[in-house]
Write a protein that binds this DNA or RNA. Sequence first.
DNA 1: GGCCATTTGGTTGTGCACAACTTAATTGTG
DNA 2: CACAATTAAGTTGTGCACAACCAAATGGCC
Lengths: 177, 177
Amino acid sequence: MARKGYPGPMTASPTPHGSHEVAAADADWLRLENQICFSLHAASRAFNGVYRLILRDLGLTYPQYLVLLVLWERGDQPVKKLGEHLRLDSGTLSPLVKRLEAAGLVRRERSAQDERSVRVRLTEEGSALRGRALEVPRRIAAATGFELTEIIELRERLDRLTTALDAATLTEAQGAP
Amino acid sequence: MARKGYPGPMTASPTPHGSHEVAAADADWLRLENQICFSLHAASRAFNGVYRLILRDLGLTYPQYLVLLVLWERGDQPVKKLGEHLRLDSGTLSPLVKRLEAAGLVRRERSAQDERSVRVRLTEEGSALRGRALEVPRRIAAATGFELTEIIELRERLDRLTTALDAATLTEAQGAP
DNA sequence: GGCCATTTGGTTGTGCACAACTTAATTGTG
DNA sequence: CACAATTAAGTTGTGCACAACCAAATGGCC
């Protein structure tokens, strides 16, 4: 668990264009970036673990909980909108929503106006579950042990990171070689 | 993409024990915590997306890359040790390592001293891949657009978060009600 | 009307994460 | 020595994430 030191900023300074020097600098970068992406990965899974426990009482997984949050806050939504709010595509949402339907929490019904669209509607039971879910956030916040300001800062930084990474994904994917 | 405002600290102040008041405060907390866990979730997936692209040339997934990082840095390891470094259990690592073996990057061999243990050993090809992987971190760092100090701060905060969450998971799981 | 691209969901296949269980080797204890 | 407990991997089953592909409905265009 004890964290080994990361290479100091001096050793990781971006060496201009050298040949041998670059290899050493790369190795340092590698170690550092390993930390940041790995830290994020680990934090995400740790969060998932806490949610798993707390949501077990409600019979929900964490992504299912997210879907319900959207429905509780914004009302019935077509699958498309859910995907936009949660950044998930149909390949993830279709089976997930079906499981929520199997659990009796939502119903899926084709729109009459546009038969391509499927509206996800909370059932009585699904709406009622919100009451039991209200205590979840506080338990989660308590588990982090973070101050409110700290949470806000962290969130801001993560969102900025996500935006940058998404942009980079696009440019990598198509445009600039 | 535009972010709606989060409830200010004043509205989210933990109301003592009320009845109606609590519901409103809970709803605020809910919104806020939704942000932080969701932000983390989204950031993690965004990172994964960038890695997916950059690692495609190497024929690796992100978790496979993590396993190789450990092997490159610390040499051959039994599966158990890999799991400790990466916080992954055998259910995840067994098939993953088999895929790496199928790709010709590692070999798995039973230890002679302890026949329960399986040592994961880099092949020639697996070791050689390190050279091509050296440029990965810099491309990732560039994709984040973050300063070094900012990355380090973020990492520190995430690690602290993970530690707190892990501790909370344990106490939730067994002990204190 | 007939033809097209677009939009919306769905399906399939691969891989990761994890819980629960199994198997085999090892260690500890009487 | 015999036997129980522990440990290391593996297996099975469920669910999420995403790429790639498919089908039906829609809307624009001639």
